[in-house]
Design a protein around this nucleic acid. Structure first.
Length: 432
RNA sequence: GUGGCCUUAGCUCAACUGGCAGAGCAUCGGAUUGUGGCUCCGAAGGUUGUGGGUUCGAGCCCCAUAGGCCACCCCA
């Protein structure tokens, strides 16, 4: 075992796995464009205050999961690695005056996030999210559009069995009253609360609702529900979101105990789970409305909504659902090999001609004999081998179809065209 | 941050009660001169995660530590 290794909770994405990520990124970018979201990039570290105020001082993410960068002696700022993307994007919205753009501002970002968690499968200290934000639209149509967008991502990625869990957690007008009532309810039953839950009664009473403790089941079932305590505006918004979802044909389940871990959420909250995996707290993705966040970060009162989907967990779920479908890094269209093991100049030159024609070609640069060269080409699943031999003196090469086992002589001048035609037929699934 | 399980070759795993560390796959090479996938032969690959301890002797027992995994906390 080598002494140097990747830091705890991080990992190397070797080419096959990186290819799986690249495929998801490509789907995400394509979907974002189709839904009218433009790509944005923000720094992977921010002023601590941006994250602390944006995500919420009392959240676990801020209290114990932030990577803090040790400040240099000449710096006054404290920097933290971003644990999520929304706070940074909203900071950018305020900083660059995007409230003067046509509203809403719809942006999307793919990148790494960092949380100092105890690692587990599907839970890493550096992980990748696709993040989508619409700032400046009070909804509810945009809420439904986003929920549909996230679900479509999973479908296009190849995960059919994803459930949408939906709830409304109210806003500043109605949630405080509800929390007070909930606190009172649990306080009356404090004797029945496990220690952990009793402690949470003081810190974050809402979290009691999604406790995993079986002893809490009956208590939670009888607890007051946020849905019965929404103010008129929040109730109307929630109902309208559902009307839009129904019209879109998006299937969802209202989950009254769904609360989100970040402070900035208001009204609409949603999460994506693999069907049958709801018991595990391995959410594939989640999001919600954050109508107060822009103001918290120094902007004018502005509504917003967004979600983040975990790429790592999506790759994991895809591999579990169908291990045979895991994509491999792309194979070259052709490998240039030679009868003379030493003739690397010829192989590089011919490969160069093909590469100039935008074809994906590997040249065999080793000194092994022809049989070994062909063997390697077959095993990396290349479609063709271009074999250089004595005919090269007459401007000819042998073009061998490694999949079909056929072979013919082709003039060097025609080689790129032949390969391009065959490649095109191959991509369209036709026999060559 | 809490509790538990695990760690032997690049990967997946063997190794009796404490007695000379092995296999399959992968890698590299060979099987009479310019033709692959299959097959056969061979080579290389290890401080048994790391550091201590017990013992004539430790992959195996003890302690510590690191990493992975599971359940929590929480989240993607």
């Amino acid at each position: 075992m080598p002494s140097a290794r990747a830091p705890r909770g991080t990992r190397d994405l070797l080419p096959d796995e990186r290819a799986a990520f690249a495929r998801l990124e490509s789907i995400a970018r394509d979907l974002a464009a189709r839904y009218g979201y433009r790509e944005i990039e923000t720094p992977i570290f921010e002023q601590a205050g941006v994250i602390e105020r944006g995500v919420g001082e009392a959240t676990d993410v801020v209290e114990k999961e932030l990577f803090r960068l040790a400040p240099r002696s000449d710096e006054r700022e404290t920097w933290v690695l971003r644990p999520e993307a929304t706070a940074g994007i909203v900071r950018a919205y305020v900083q660059h005056g995007l409230q003067t753009w046509p509203q809403p501002v719809k942006v999307s970002l793919v990148g790494p996030m960092f949380r100092y968690d105890r690692p587990q499968a599907g839970r890493y200290r550096q992980f990748w999210q696709w993040d989508v934000e619409a700032i400046g639209d009070p909804g509810p149509a945009v809420d439904a559009e986003q929920i549909d967008l996230g679900l479509r991502f999973y479908h296009e990625a190849g995960l059919a069995d994803v459930d949408v869990l939906l709830n409304s957690i109210g806003d500043g007008a109605c949630r405080p009253d509800y929390v007070a009532e909930l606190t009172g309810y649990f306080a009356r039953h404090e004797a029945r609360l496990p220690d952990l839950e009793a402690a949470r009664l003081q810190t974050n009473p809402l979290r009691l609702l999604d406790s995993k403790d079986p002893a809490m089941g009956a208590l939670i079932a009888a607890a007051p529900r946020i849905g019965d305590h929404l103010c008129g505006a929040c109730a109307a918004h929630f109902a309208a979101v559902r009307v839009h979802l129904d019209a879109l044909g998006v299937r969802y389940r209202v989950e009254p105990t769904l609360v989100r871990g970040l402070d900035y959420y208001t009204r609409t909250a949603f999460e994506y789970y693999r069907r049958g995996a709801e018991g595990q707290q391995q959410a594939l993705g989640g999001g919600g409305r954050y109508d107060g966040l822009v103001e918290v970060l120094g902007g004018r009162p502005t509504p917003g909504i967004g979600f983040a989907l975990g790429l790592d967990r999506t790759v994991l779920a895809l591999a579990e659902a169908d291990p045979s479908a895991v994509v491999a890094a792309p194979a070259p269209l052709a490998v240039v090999v030679g009868a003379d093991p030493a003739a690397t100049v010829d192989r590089l030159r011919v490969a160069g001609l093909l590469r100039a024609e935008r074809l994906a070609v590997r040249a065999e640069l080793g000194q092994r004999k022809l049989g070994r060269q062909l063997e390697a080409a077959s095993r990396e699943r290349a479609h063709f081998a271009v074999i250089l031999g004595d005919e090269l003196a007459d401007g000819q090469v042998r073009l061998k179809d490694l999949l079909a086992g056929t072979q013919r002589t082709v003039a060097l001048a025609d080689l790129a065209g032949e390969l391009r035609r065959a490649d095109s037929r191959h991509r369209h699934g036709e026999a060559v």
